[in-house]
């Protein structure tokens, strides 16, 4: 069964074509890609979420073309129904429902979080159920116990800033531009992660919740003090020490969650899952604890259509369908 998936929950408009039977991705297109801008007349929008309505057609066309598939061959439509900006979600969701309605195809609405939870299943080496999933991005930092392709329960989440957001805000503080998460990680490679001891928010012994707002403030206070004294900032050390504080909490809590679940498998998802330091330390921890770690490639970590196709395929098999008048939602029932 060929699945066409559409995702428009935040900045990017994304589409994918997925072969359900073979469980292979035939195309995975994101609006920030160069091909799309070429198609779009070379205009790079200031804010992509403003442009979903202009991006949706070229992105879907590009996905079908790259897959070498015509719309006639598509048998299932899947789209992100929430969470996110309702105005953005409705562009992709309404477009998807319209395609399905005219073509007489089944249509499935998928939770964006489910996409990230399942994204490691897009790779050759995929976790068996059950597993513990850490979804970590600019908008979310959550831990889930994954019982099957359609059953997940939340074990913890951020109480304030998401991990990716903390990276972006520290980048801004250090005047590295915004969004600057990847820049912080790159600079951290040349720094000493033990140079500065920034606080780790554990939030109580058994808590699987996260908090990164205090860490952001601690970095800020540290930087302000040095600036006031007129001392030079060792940017690489600050980046490395900050990153270490984030990663250490993520790794420890994820391993604790797996242990609490008696799971032997951990899967990562979300944009920050492609952070190299997180991958390295998580792998080390898993080796130590006898756990298997599954991490999707970067293109499946960031927001993408492939994960929505996969989640849609699973939800379809579980009998889920949308009605034509179903609405998008802003808050995830999963989170």
């Amino acid at each position: 069964m060929l699945i066409l998936a559409i995702e428009s929950s935040c900045d990017d408009t994304a589409a994918a074509v997925f072969d359900g039977k073979e469980e292979t991705v035939l195309a995975n297109v994101v609006s920030s890609q160069n091909e799309i801008h070429a198609r779009f007349g070379g205009i790079v929008p200031e804010l992509a979420s403003r442009c979903h309505i202009e991006m949706i057609w070229p992105v879907v066309r590009e996905a079908l073309d790259q897959a070498g598939v015509s719309l006639d061959e598509v048998q299932l439509i899947s789209a992100t129904q929430g969470p996110g900006l309702v105005g953005s979600l409705l562009v992709g969701f309404t477009f998807a429902k319209s395609l399905a309605m005219v073509r007489g195809l089944p249509c499935v609405g998928v939770d964006h979080m489910a996409g990230h939870i399942l994204s490691s299943m897009l790779e050759q080496e995929r976790p068996e159920y059950p597993y513990t999933a850490l979804t970590v991005s600019g908008g979310n930092t959550s831990l889930f116990s994954v019982a099957s392709a359609v059953e997940y329960s939340r074990m913890g989440r951020t109480r304030d800033d998401a991990a990716g957001e903390a990276f972006d805000k520290v980048a801004k503080l250090l005047e590295l531009g915004y969004p600057g998460g990847p820049v912080v990680s790159r600079l951290a490679e040349d720094g000493d992660p033990k140079a500065i001891t920034f606080p780790r928010a554990w939030l109580g012994k058994d808590s699987l919740d996260f908090s990164f707002s205090g860490l952001k403030t601690a970095v800020m206070n540290y930087v302000h003090k040095l600036r006031q004294k007129g001392e030079p900032l060792k940017i690489a050390d600050i980046c490395a020490s900050f990153q270490e504080a984030v990663v250490e909490v993520l790794v420890t809590k994820t391993v604790n969650a797996a242990r609490a679940n008696s799971h032997t498998r951990i899967a990562l998802g979300g944009g920050v899952a492609s952070n190299q330091r997180l991958r390295t330390l998580m792998q080390q921890a898993c080796d130590r604890e006898g756990l298997s770690l599954f991490v999707p490639r970067p293109a499946y970590c960031t927001d993408n259509g492939a994960m929505i196709a996969l989640a849609g395929w699973y939800h379809y098999q579980a009998g889920r369908r949308v009605e034509w008048d179903d609405d998008a939602y802003s808050r995830s029932p999963l989170n």
Partner: peptide, 26 residues
């Protein structure tokens, strides 16, 4: 949980009144 809407631009909550929390930084 009232978390930062920097990435999503808007978070909605339901209380005595609906609460819309926006961060327009981006």
């Amino acid at each position: 949980y009232v978390s930062s809407p920097s990435y999503a631009l808007l978070h909605e909550y339901s209380g005595r009144l609906p609460v819309y929390h926006m961060d327009l930084y981006r």
